[in-house]
Simulated scan of single mutants.
Amino acid sequence: MLTSSSRNSFNFSVQSIENYQNLLAQNHFIYVETEDPSCDWIKFAKLVTGEDLIPQYGKDIFHVKYEPEFLKFSDARGQKPLLPHTEATDYPSPPKYLGLWCKKPADCGGGLTTLADVEGFLKTLTEAEKQKLMETQHYFGATGGVHANRTEGAVHTILSFNDNKPIFRFSCNYITHGDYSPDPDNLNPFTPDPFLAEISDRFMKYYEENHMAIRMDQYSFLLWDNQCMAHSRTTYSDPTRILERIFLG
């Protein structure tokens, strides 16, 4: 799973950055372990991606940590599992890349970040289904729940392509429940679009069978392509788990 054998700190040499860029282009993610709590992981992410930070909730860094008021929700700040999604579908231009820096992993062994490439899923769709995902404009923006009106929302297709690279904008929670962070045990009435509900069910099945799970060590960094990789997180019970998240591009 590791894409670097170094456990000291990031190597900022031109050759090293080019190697990571090649790995990111090939695998759509990189995972690096270090032993340095003060290494400049944000500089590293910028060099590898060639992109600048995008603010989230008005800040460059979002602290992914347990907050009691989110306990019962399927949310980054809760402890329940997250369903597969690409990040920030309600942004007019969702981030190209996501980066996670692990300050403190969950001692319980849970809280694994999971990833799956969407290209394999697209191969399971018919040409008509892909065409519908490419042609139909959908509104993304929660009007209820803990993320109600966090943005003005955005209208875009679920699938597009940049040359041969797929750009996928999807949230199983949002498509299925109309809420980015629902309470799985107390779901509000919602009638999803039948076509998208079927796609969501099939995508979750594909994701379950094809995802990779990464338990991030302390002072490790995970970076992935948010346009063609979906992600989720397993449940955990340790409230001291802390990650820092950045958007790029």
Rank of each mutant, 00 (worst) to 15 (best):
D217R: 10
C39F: 15
F73Q: 12
S16Q: 10
R245Y: 04
D201I: 01
T113F: 01
H156P: 04
H147K: 10
G50R: 13
L83Y: 08
L53Y: 10
F10G: 08
G58N: 11
L112W: 00
S13Q: 01
G178I: 11
I158K: 06
G78W: 06
Y174S: 09
G141C: 08
A148Y: 08
S181V: 05
D117A: 11
A76E: 01
W41A: 11
P95C: 05
F161E: 05
P92V: 11
R150T: 14
R7H: 14
K80V: 08
M1N: 10
K59L: 12
T235R: 03
N149K: 14
G111I: 00
K59D: 12
G50S: 13
Q131D: 14
I167V: 15
L223H: 09
I175L: 07
I54S: 11
P55V: 14
E33L: 06
F62H: 13
M134G: 10
E127N: 12
I30C: 10
H156Q: 12
G153V: 09
T151G: 10
F62T: 13
L112F: 03
G249K: 09
F247Y: 15
D179A: 08
Q227A: 07
E35N: 15
V32W: 14
D183Q: 10
F29V: 03
K46Q: 15
Q26V: 08
F170S: 07
F12S: 03
D60V: 04
H28V: 06
C39G: 01
Q131A: 13
